Simulated assay, not measured.
Amino acid sequence: MTQQLSDHTLDYLMEGFQLISFDWRYLYLNDSVVRQSMYPRDELIGFTMMEKYPGIENTELFSTLRRCMRKRISEQIENEFSYPSGEKGWFELHIQPVPEGIFILSIDITRRKEAEASLMKLNENLEELVASRTSQLESKNKDIIDSLNYAQNIQKAFLPNRDEFLNLFPDALLINKPKDIVSGDFYWYRDLGDEIITVAADCTGHGVPGALMSMIGIEKLNNITLKTTDPSEILHQLNKSIRIAMGSSSIYEQCLDGMDIALCLINKITGSVTFSGANRPAWIIRKDASEVEVIKATKKAIGGFTEHDQCFDSHELQLASGDTLYLFSDGYADTFSDQQKKMTTKRFREFLLEIQHETMRRQEELLENFVEQWKAGTEQIDDILVVGIRF
Rank of each mutant, 00 (worst) to 15 (best):
N30A: 01
D163S: 14
E316D: 11
H94Q: 09
V182S: 01
Q373R: 12
D11Q: 02
S6M: 07
P40I: 00
G205E: 07
P170Q: 04
M69H: 07
W24S: 02
I216D: 11
L238S: 01
T198H: 00
T204C: 13
L129Y: 00
R362L: 14
A211C: 13
I251W: 03
D313V: 02
P231D: 00
E80L: 10
F169L: 04
E92H: 12
T298N: 01
F336K: 11
S106V: 06
I244A: 08
N176W: 15
I77P: 10
D143N: 06
A320V: 02
F348D: 00
C255N: 14
Y187S: 03
K113S: 07
N279A: 07
L352G: 10
I95K: 06
V294G: 00
S337I: 10
L367W: 05
I175D: 04
L27N: 02
S314M: 02
G377D: 05
S118G: 00
M343D: 00
E293F: 10
Y187D: 06
S248I: 08
I302S: 03
A282F: 08
L44F: 01
Y332A: 08
E219L: 02
E316Q: 14
S37M: 12
L265Y: 03
G210K: 08
I285K: 07
L122W: 01
Q373D: 14
T9K: 05
D257M: 08
P54N: 08
V386N: 14
L174M: 08
E78Y: 07
S106P: 09
H308K: 10
H94V: 06
F370H: 15
K268Q: 13
K342I: 15
E78C: 13
S250I: 10
C203I: 09
T48G: 03
D180Y: 04
P170W: 00
A320D: 14
T9M: 00
P54F: 07
D143R: 08
T229A: 01
D313C: 01
S249E: 11
R35S: 15
A200K: 05
N223F: 12
K375H: 06
M38A: 12
E87N: 12
W24H: 13
L256K: 14
Q96N: 09
E316L: 05
I269L: 11
K300S: 11
R280V: 07
I104Q: 01
H308S: 11
R133F: 02
T324P: 12
F328N: 11
K113G: 03
A157D: 12
F158P: 08
T204N: 12
A151H: 06
L122H: 05
L367K: 08
E100T: 02
R347P: 06
F62W: 10
D108R: 03
G55V: 09
L61Q: 13
M343K: 13
E219D: 14
K177G: 00
Y187K: 03
S139E: 13
V294H: 12
G271C: 07
E379L: 12
L173T: 07
S329W: 04
L238H: 04
F62R: 01
S290Q: 10
R35T: 11
E368L: 07
Y53W: 15
I175Q: 05
T359G: 06
S37W: 09
Q318E: 13
E78G: 04
R162A: 04
I302P: 09
L122I: 15
I175H: 02
A245K: 12
F370Y: 15
G304L: 04
L44S: 03
S63A: 15
A211P: 10
K140H: 05
N30I: 02
M38Y: 11
